[in-house]
Design a protein around this nucleic acid. Structure first.
Lengths: 118, 118
DNA sequence: CCAATTGTTCAATAACTTTTGAACTAAGGA
DNA sequence: TCCTTAGTTCAAAAGTTATTGAACAATTGG
């Protein structure tokens, strides 16, 4: 790790909901869920927002306890904190992601790319 | 009815999440879920916020499609749109409410009153 | 009709959130 | 060492949301 993360029991429901209530951040979370196990670096999300703005949104996700970011060299490896979220708020993440997948108007990462296999 | 409500398919996930990501509104929704079937009027929520502020939050909930408000006399009968929410976002409302019920730091309506039976 | 009750609207303000660009740091490769 | 890559930080600007009080409207009971 390296950057400040809340512990599992510090994760707050209203903060998580508010953080997921932003289309850019929801797109990031959906992508992380779709590629679960494959740690991402920020460049994956550059089609959603500018580099600076991504830094802001990724910090929000991290501070809310939704993602974990660890510094590796000059990159950040970003993962979903699914274990902690599922323990704390059972079923929430799955229902949010399922709902987002059903909404074709939401922004999404890499919908045009040929990356059906990670 | 009387006030503007979105139709079920106009309900937007990020807007619902953002609206539920406010502790006052989350408390309202929890109370409506707990008293499901019993239409509420605004006065029930006066321990959460001022009358004016409640009017604001209840309008947000209504505009997001989370609640339905109908004018009856000088009151508003407020109900949860559980049917529409469950159809649109299966499991979401239940997991949010369950998560909120598990968090003792969240504001809540009528926790001190003897109203175990409606 | 009058007064009380219920809730809304409006304008102001306060408080946040999002977005931006420029400057920066830190690591890794040539 | 110098350059590039990856991402952060900062301050400013823009936009949005929350909170307040005063004034308003509509319904109901006396």
């Amino acid at each position: 790790m390296s950057l400040p993360h809340p512990t599992a029991d510090q994760i707050s429901l209203p903060i998580v909901l508010a953080v997921l209530g932003d289309p850019t951040r929801l797109a990031i979370v959906r992508y992380l869920a779709r590629k679960e196990g494959v740690p991402m670096n920020c460049s994956k999300f550059l089609d959603l927002a500018s580099k600076t703005n991504l830094s802001y949104h990724l910090a929000k996700l991290r501070e809310a306890g939704v993602t974990r970011s660890e510094a590796v060299g000059t990159s950040r490896l970003i993962t979903l904190r699914r274990d902690d979220l599922d323990k704390r708020f059972p079923g929430l993440l799955d229902s949010v992601i399922a709902a987002a997948d059903g909404d074709k108007d939401l922004p999404a990462v890499g919908t045009s790319e040929m990356e059906l296999e990670a």
